[in-house]
Write a protein that binds this DNA or RNA. Structure first.
Lengths: 218, 218
DNA sequence: TTAGGATAAGTTGGATCCAATCCAGGATCA
DNA sequence: TGATCCTGGATTGGATCCAACTTATCCTAA
């Protein structure tokens, strides 16, 4: 999760495409042609090929031989399963990092949550919500676990945005309450409650999503 | 999980290296030089590079710029976490596929378990045990979930073998009992019991592993 | 009119060559 | 004597060219 520009071309290209996909500029089902990307970024196709493999590892693209790369278009059933996985896996990171949560981190979470509650734009909400949750896992130093969680967020990001674009940002008080209860449980250092509120939050989001099949591929 | 030889060189090379790593012929921490592999398989370095990216996505290798690829050497703490993830994630696949479990599959599981109980060699046990568990997930058609589970098994395979090499195959009756209870719960189509026995089996294995730090990297 | 197949354009996969980087060993200087 | 800098070998990263595959289009025939 470094923000500085990587010195290696394949990493730089991967970062570019990652941003394109996560922002929604490249949507599910859309094809990514190696030559297009190479020409746009002033490189040969070779580092683009490597970049696409890197993104495949992150769940952002899928690859089939001689047919190129595209952003996976997930069904509602697949996204539902990804949320079930999140519900079980993310509490592990939260509880693992809980002993190292300090006042500075809690302040940042409170600040982020305020900005989330004040926000009016869907794209902004998606970004801030992602930042909020990933920040709650930032004290977990189990790289294998946190990278898996980032993959899960990556794969489902588009459908979160699509859902919010449909429902709008009104009636979000439930999510805000859950976020604040999560922060409070973290402040108390209570692993059971932290896991409870987090799992409940993810589960409720999943249920809401399943009420909007129009956010998914046909 | 196709067994036929892939037509694409990068896939074929990936399959070769995958077998080398899973069998233990390439161990944790060991470096994989592109030229070595290319020369051995009669290809150029390019498809080897792609193969290493594919394996990286599967958790079998790790990559750093200009420093090449190697098989990750995990600490006991990391493997313990992977087992905690397995404990929470694998029951999802089991329960998801449970309605489609039929008599033929149960027969195959019973047969496999008999061969596991009759086995005397560690390498054979590791392979059969893997086959047994992955077979219990074979009716789960959620590709995203099952591929994640395969990755988890891949990453921990070496340490299972190392553990068994230390402790031997005696006193394995607990695992056998757990396997048989799992089969029986699947026969009844009971998701609660199936999840219970599976999670317990993984958890107990994790506990046993944590008693043998000598199986891990320093 | 439509189904089928041949063909051609477009795209990806692979090989070879060159450039950039890393690492170990030794020489130089304080 | 010790640390630092430099240099050469080894290895990976990238560019260009060619081959193989996929796919869409157009023509032919029923």
């Amino acid at each position: 999760m470094t923000t500085s520009a990587p010195e290696v071309a394949s990493q730089r290209i991967a970062a570019y495409l990652r941003a394109e996909i996560l922002s929604g500029r490249i949507g599910p089902g859309e094809r990514i042609r190696q030559e297009d990307v190479a020409a746009r970024l002033g490189a040969s196709r070779l580092p683009v090929r490597e970049a696409l493999r890197i993104l495949e590892a992150e769940g952002l693209t899928e690859h089939s031989a001689n047919r190129g790369a595209r952003v996976p278009a997930l069904t509602m059933r697949q996204v539902d399963m990804l949320y079930q996985i999140r519900e079980r896996v993310e509490p592990l990171a939260l509880v693992d990092g809980l002993p190292r949560v300090d006042a500075t981190l809690l302040d940042r979470l409170v600040d982020l949550e305020k900005r989330i509650e004040a926000g009016t734009e869907v794209g902004e909400f998606v970004a801030l919500d992602r930042e909020f949750h990933l920040l709650t896992y930032s004290t977990c130093d189990q790289e294998l676990l946190t990278s898996m969680i980032v993959r899960l967020w990556n794969s489902t990001q588009h459908y979160r945005r699509a859902y919010l674009a449909i429902t709008g940002l009104s009636h979000r008080w439930v999510a805000h309450a859950e976020h604040n209860l999560l922060i409070e449980a973290m402040r108390r250092g209570d692993p059971a409650d932290a896991e409870r509120y987090l799992a409940g939050h993810i589960r409720r989001t999943r249920t809401e999503l399943s009420r909007h099949p129009e956010a998914f591929a046909a």
